[in-house]
Amino acid sequence: MAKNEKSKNISRRNFLGTGFLLGAGAITAGGVVLAAGNAIPEISGKKIKLLTQDGKIIEVDETAVLDAEQNLSEKEIRDGIPGRKFVMVVDLSKCKNVRKCISKCQEKHGLQPDQEFMKVLLMQDDKNSAPYWFPKPCYHCDQPACVKVCPVDATYKRHDGIVLIDNERCVGCKFCVAGCPYSARIFHWKEVELPIELANRKYSSETSVPAKKGTVSKCDFCPDQSRQGKLPHCVTACPMGVIYFGDMNEDTVTNGDETIRFTDIIRDRAGYRYLADLGTAPLVYYLPPVNRQFPFESGLESVTDEVKERYKNTEYMKSKKE
């Protein structure tokens, strides 16, 4: 795949330099973070680069941007990060059900083991076709079925493509859960138990933390990370580099190790969106599980019995038993 090689040439640093720091620059445009007067905690000594409003690259101490999301206004959160159009590409040929994306996401969002924003499903389109592992976050649809039905505007679509939930507005009618065709949403059925440092955080739709009993949550594409120029937790947690995240406006996506052109990879690898015929226009693309880097069965080796149990109703597991 020559094209693929070529796209790798856009180095990661380059991408982060022009791209993701823009996000942080945009925060300065919003006039929120870099104010020296803000009580900045300890200076960590670690410098990071930022792009200012007038296009200069400056270095600041890391701690200056840490609490960015906590100072955003309601409107800034609802509008999204200016100039962005986030997109995710999942390379199914690389996934071997390591489930690190799930555990990292759960840890960062204070989820219980039975609550998953990201799921890894065992998929098999029919009994003659090959099984494959299928990571599934919220698709942040451009025509989101969930947003349409919300009676109180608690779930909304932002200009940067992300669909978020405001759990201080949500009345818990669960219509969005019933309406989402991709089973992306979870409901908090009981009092939420959180580690103390998460529980004490000020709530923000961008972090989905802390969750509240009687409201809904789902994968949020970690916009708080993007605001700091970082990648979503699932992307960085995956040791296989399955998940790519990036910006359609810049036409680049990265899994942390390699940065590639979004349009190229979609064209060359026949990228597609799952169940796109429902008209929801998802922002998550899949690269088909061809030329796999691991045999499918390896996905069952490292997982616990509890996880294996989950797949017991699939055609694949049933046929294996026979």
């Binding site: 349409k148 039905v149 009676p151 505007d153 507005r169 949500c170 818990g172 009618c173 219509f175 509240k212």
Partner: peptide, 20 residues
Amino acid sequence: IGRLDRLYYLILFPRIQSPI
């Protein structure tokens, strides 16, 4: 409904697009 305490939001922040 999960949050009965917020029921009045249905009237305070109504979205006419929603069948509810």
